[in-house]
Nucleic acid binder design. Structure first.
Lengths: 157, 157
DNA sequence: TATTGTTATACTCTATAACTATA
DNA sequence: TATAGTTATAGAGTATAACAATA
């Protein structure tokens, strides 16, 4: 298919088609890039990037989570989390606290300011998704999330 | 929802749930990361990264495509494409050719070696997707691609 | 020995701005 | 003036390897 394709465009589509458009991975990437760019615009004034947001959200939802566990939940390395937590702590959105019983761990707790910032940010993110994905019906969104969850379940921790 | 969540895990899932898991953007990212990592493993020995592969594929499918048009199709800036084309040209997989009528443009053409590499790579990619996404039925894959296309159609060129 | 947090370092991918040569 | 390709530079985001403190 698309064997001797030319640059001519199909009648019902602005874009020329290629084998790329049938690959799940490539479509995941392009869709992700669109969502990410729109996310940044939505949280621009709050200076919260996608990483900061997801980390803050998990800290707010799971008080006293350790950095190791947070990294695992985010699917990134512990080392990569340090800069994220540093930034959030420097902005007063969370604090590292010590835990009795194991002096190695740094339990993370959102500050009141961090809680407020998280609630506001979550609202902005929900608005952003509501608008951006308005091309999809509620059912289509559910289906999409469900399919993506199946892919995520493949993750090799 | 998930208001006072703890680190307790749900019964039917290894992972604790959070509001993050209901966000389309976040699920897109995590699924994309999984697909990308598996892609790299699959094309490891051929030393073809996702970017190189997608660029080579489009050059093979649209002979004499210009760099500007290729960049547009890939959704990246012209400047970012230079290094990709440089690498593919240095490896003898494509060549920059001049076009009569406009001496500014560099029309790209896959070499025979590039054609061969592309066909092999496409096979490896199809195998990789077949295996990785075997948790999805054929119909689910079609649905997923269809939904992702709807999101991609939002792209502001 | 293993784990937590950390640092140093490098790699991938992308963007912006400015340049050149053409048109 | 505008476009094609290019260069320089910077910014996200991630990974690997090694280390100190602690278990």
């Amino acid at each position: 298919m698309n064997e001797s394709a030319t640059l001519a465009q199909s009648d019902d589509d602005q874009r020329p088609l290629s084998d790329l458009d049938s690959l799940i991975g490539y479509n995941l990437k392009r869709a992700y890039m669109i969502a990410q760019a729109d996310f940044r615009k939505a949280l621009d004034e709050d200076q919260l990037g996608p990483r900061d947001f997801s980390a803050l959200l998990l800290v707010a939802q799971f008080p006293e989570i350790t950095q190791s566990r947070l990294a695992r939940m985010l699917g990134i390395e512990r080392s990569g989390l340090v800069a994220i937590v540093d930034a959030l702590e420097n902005r007063g959105l969370l604090k590292r606290t010590h835990v009795e019983g194991d002096r190695r761990v740094q339990a993370l707790v959102a500050t009141p300011k961090g809680q407020t910032a998280y609630v506001k940010a979550l609202g902005l993110v929900r608005d952003h998704e509501e608008k951006l994905f308005s091309v999809l019906t509620d059912q289509e969104r559910d289906t999409l999330v469900s399919l993506l969850h199946k892919i995520r379940a493949l993750e090799t921790d």
